[in-house]
């Protein structure tokens, strides 16, 4: 199994590197220093999993999205962490990463856990704890379906924290129309809650154009 570990400045990543590089079933060449370097490693090697520290969840999400767009498949993207908090696992899965590797485990246990994450990822499964909570994998990383300028304006105002009444006033609309559109947007995007829409829309930024060349 070939791993890519990012990022160089993270204590957690150095720990992951030290723990995993000695295992006979793993190949870990080093620690990538940046997101661009991770992308470069993925392009030049057949990588099974990319390990990133908890504060790289957003970076991992962006890299995975763009690797998927360019190649239609991507390695498993895994948060490496010193604990196995369900909140962190939930966030990782919701933004489209594949799981969390608990670095407090022994090397053999960690490798077993990593194997499970990679296999679950290839079979599009998630761990049972997260599944029980009803977390939808990648819900917060989807390209949102917003049919019109009105819908996008609506989402902009929801993200700004405005109540429906203020949104109706701001968009020169009625509260009935605003709420009907919110219901339609939630349904089209398979979301249950208004807050999911707010979070997903606020996370829907893309890799900037100056960095896109690196991802393609």
């Amino acid at each position: 199994m070939k791993l890519c570990i990012g990022a160089d400045k993270s204590e957690v990543s150095r720990l992951a590197f030290e723990k995993l590089r000695q295992h006979p079933s793993l190949t870990v060449d080093g620690i990538s220093q940046s997101g661009a370097e991770i992308i470069s490693v993925i392009r030049e090697n057949r990588i099974d999993a990319v390990l990133v520290p908890p504060d790289w969840i957003e970076v991992g999400r962006l890299i995975k999205m763009h690797v998927l767009r360019a190649h239609s498949t991507a390695p498993a993207f895994v948060i490496s962490s010193l604990d196995n908090r369900i909140s962190l696992r939930t966030r990782a899965i919701a933004v489209g990463l594949d799981g969390l590797l608990d670095l407090s485990l022994s090397t053999d246990e960690a490798v077993d856990q990593l194997n499970r994450i990679i296999n679950q990822s290839s079979q599009r499964q998630i761990d049972s704890d997260i599944e029980r909570l009803g977390v939808v994998p990648g819900l917060l990383s989807r390209d949102l379906l917003l049919d019109s300028d009105f819908d996008r304006a609506l989402a902009d105002m929801i993200v700004a924290g405005l109540p429906d009444e203020a949104i109706a006033q701001g968009l020169n609309s009625t509260i009935q129309e605003v709420r009907n559109r919110i219901a339609a947007i939630l349904s089209a995007n398979e979301m249950q809650y208004r807050t999911q829409l707010a979070v997903a829309y606020s996370w829907s930024f893309q890799l900037p154009d100056f960095a896109r060349l690196l991802a393609e």
């Binding site: 109540p163 709420r179 009907n180 219901a183 339609a184 249950q192 208004r194 807050t195």
Partner: peptide
């Protein structure tokens, strides 16, 4: 419903 979270058409 749901404290302003759930929208049902």
């Amino acid at each position: 419903t749901g404290s302003g979270e759930i929208y049902t058409l």
